[in-house]
Amino acid sequence: MKKRILSLFIVVSAIICVYSNLYSAEKVYMPFFELINVHADYQYSVARLFKNYVDEQGRYILIIPQRADSLIAQPPLNEIRETAKSNDCSFFIVADMNRIGETVIISVSMYKTENSQLIWKDRLKANTPDDIDPILQKLSRVIGTEHKAAEDGDIYSVTSYESQQLKQIHSISAFGISIGGALLMSNPFIDDPFSGGGGIFWSYDIRTVLFEVDAQSYFLGSYSVGHLSIDVYRPFFAESSTPFLGGGLGFGYTTGASNGQGNGMMLFVGGGYIFGRTADVGLRVRAQYMLGAFKVENTEKSLPHGFMLNMELYFGK
């Protein structure tokens, strides 16, 4: 007897809960989706499915028109508002499906019936017809909130559009050689500041940025200075010949010049000009200021710093 009473109590409680949710849910009117380059068969089926998902959430009851035998044009905004008023709806929705190529863009906007104020809108892209169902689920969960459907984390409503791999920008790689000189402006190098040399570098051009691995050594003088660094440069223009500006960080060293030995991190700032950026073989001029983050041996405060100027030839792939 007690089990029967308990079962009856649970059923009655569930019924009361359902009716209370329906009573507290606000009514929202939505005409059929406006279809742009989409087959007419989708108009009623999509609206009906969206209604089911919205009603399941319990916050709103979606009111849609009766099914029609042919494609229905979406009424003007003021006419939709009047229909929402006549159905005692607090809000109304304007939605469309727009196909561009193989992608269908689904847009939904929600307005207050009282003053036609836009209170919520969202948009998602469907890559295949199978994406439409999870998109409608996502939109139904965030309708009228501050959240975006694209941020919905439900693992069972991932679209094929969302699962696409990001398209990569292919870089243009190049190997180059350089010849030039260094001019150190700090003790103990200042009495004989110039040293000649050169080096090699690997460059990766992704159109808006140049990434480089740079190895230079200047040893044709009374001292030697060199470095291995990673540099980043920004071209000024999207043209074959353009100036560029940037800098880098690496490991450097100095030797010779009366105990002028030291090694450690080096900072580089500079720029130059590229000739024939899109050609298989290119030429550029590059100038850099270098500053070592280490003290030279037998000097109290001397940090090696100075300038480098190179003429560089590179071979692209």
Rank of each mutant, 00 (worst) to 15 (best):
V18N: 07
N21E: 10
Y23P: 06
M30N: 07
P31K: 12
I36R: 14
Y42D: 03
V46A: 09
F50A: 11
N52C: 02
Y53D: 03
R67H: 11
A68D: 12
D88I: 11
M97K: 11
I100Q: 12
T103S: 15
I105V: 15
S107M: 10
K121N: 09
D133E: 06
L136T: 04
L139V: 09
R141P: 02
E146Y: 14
A150I: 15
D152N: 13
S157T: 09
V158Y: 00
Q165F: 00
K167R: 08
Q168H: 02
I169F: 03
S171M: 01
A182R: 02
L183G: 00
L184C: 11
N187H: 10
N187C: 04
P188L: 02
F189Y: 05
F194V: 09
T208M: 03
V209P: 09
L210K: 08
F211R: 03
E212A: 15
V213H: 07
V213S: 10
D214Q: 01
A215E: 00
S217Q: 05
L220K: 06
G226M: 01
G248E: 06
L249A: 08
F251V: 03
Y253Q: 00
T254K: 01
A257S: 13
S258D: 07
N263S: 08
G271M: 04
F275S: 12
T278D: 13
D280V: 09
D280I: 10
Y289N: 11
A293L: 14
V296S: 07
L313N: 00
F315R: 13
